[in-house]
Structures are given as structure tokens and as C-alpha cells.
Computed example of a mutant assay.
Amino acid sequence: MRLFCRKMKDLVFVASIVSLSIFIACSGSDRDLDDPAQITADSLRQSGIDNDSIEWYITEYGIENVITEDTGIRYALTKEGNGETPDYNDIVSVEYTGMFLNNKVFDTTIEDVAIDAGIDVAGRIYTPLRFNFTKDGSGISSSFLAQFRNGLNKILSMTDDNDVRIFSKGSKALLFMPSAVAYGVRGDQFYDQYEDNIPPNTVLIFEFKLVTFRP
């Protein structure tokens, strides 16, 4: 599965989704953003858009065995590793790459990926995310979005039908985050340092790879 290939139909589809999302965000500027009824209506509308766009991506790239949580996040194992899995309280190292629905990369822990995407930052030390693998995910830094932490912990805890963990060393998985549990209607300006932003109402996709773990 070539996650970073770009097809013209990908861009056309995503352009239509982004245009509709921006229309919703902009039209909201003429309304009372504190109106609970309006907030609910806009959220439901955007939720439908996000759901359709994620479903399209999953179908387009043939992603199988997708798990959907009540929060709206979805995740799936896309590559099997060597079978060695971490235990709770192990220190794990995980590489990740964040991208949009058109596969444009906006953040990564992998220097070569950052260079290829044109988002490398001078002086940044590219290194895997390292943390204590706990049952509740509390070992992952709170500087990350809540559903990023939740999704990554769910991926690390994935099991097969025999309740055996399957996200082993070398495994890869995808996490889909609807905009409501990402940066919402306002987007995020943090990525100005990469000469780019996360736009309002944007679905985020993260690819994770388990690199190492130790007690």
C-alpha cells in the first residue's frame, strides 16, 4: 500500500471536502459562535463530512480490519512486525508521520520524510517518540492531542482473536482523527514554523511504527 502516492482524483476529492469545510467555517463567522444550537448543527454537519472522507480514504487505499471507537477515531494495523510486543510499563519508541487526506505530510519524527515533504526544520533533532507504555496511556506526553494519545495507546494494545497483542516491533498502523477530536473549527497555527497550518475542520491521519521497546 503506497500511502504517499498522489493521484489526481485524490486531490479533486480532497479539494471538494476542504472547500465545503471552509464554507462551513466561514459561514459560521457570520453567526453567533456561542449559540449552542448552532454549534451542535455545525458539528453534526462536519461530522458527516469527516465520516464520508475517512470512509473514502479507507476504501481508496484498501485498508482492512478498521476499528472505530466511540470518540470517532479509527485505527488499523497495516503492516505486521516480527511478533515481539511490549508489556505495560515498558519504554517504547514509536515513529510517526502526520498527514492530511491528500497525503500531504505536516509533521513527522523521521528526518528523511520531513525533507521529502519540504517541512524539515533546521536544528530539529528527529527522533522517535519515546514514552512509558501504560494501560491508560498516561505515559504519553500531554502536549499531544487527547485522541492522539488515546489512539496510539489503543494501537499498542491491539490484540487478535486469542487476545494476543499484534502491534509488534516493526509493525505499522494508521490512526484517523476526525476534526472534532483534532483541531476543530479553528484549526491550528502551530505549524506556521513549517510555513503551513492545519486548516479548520481537517481530518488528520497518523502512521505509527513501533521501533524499539525495553523494560
Rank of each mutant, 00 (worst) to 15 (best):
D90P: 04
Q189F: 13
M1R: 09
V92R: 12
D161N: 12
N132T: 08
G184Y: 09
V12G: 03
N153G: 03
L20W: 14
R74T: 05
T68L: 00
N132K: 10
F190A: 15
T68A: 02
R165N: 07
C5D: 13
L175W: 07
D188K: 15
Y88E: 05
F106C: 13
P86F: 04
I125K: 09
I73S: 01
E69L: 00
A117F: 07
K79S: 11
G137I: 03
K169T: 08
D52N: 11
R165K: 12
A173P: 01
E64I: 01
T212P: 04
S43A: 13
L11M: 12
C5F: 12
E55C: 07
I198T: 15
S179K: 14
W56S: 08
A114C: 05
K135Q: 14
K209L: 05
V185K: 15
S168T: 04
S157A: 09
I39E: 13
F190W: 12
N197Q: 15
D50T: 02
G62M: 02
I166F: 01
E84Q: 02
E55Y: 00
K104E: 15
Y194T: 10
R74W: 03
N150Q: 11
V181S: 08
G72C: 02
V185R: 15
T97Q: 09
E60T: 09
E80L: 04
E69A: 00
D163F: 08
K135P: 01
D32S: 00
G83A: 00
Q46L: 15
D35G: 04
S47H: 11
Y183V: 13
D10M: 10
E95I: 07
S43V: 09
L152N: 08
G137K: 08
N150H: 12
E111H: 02
P200Y: 08
Y96S: 11
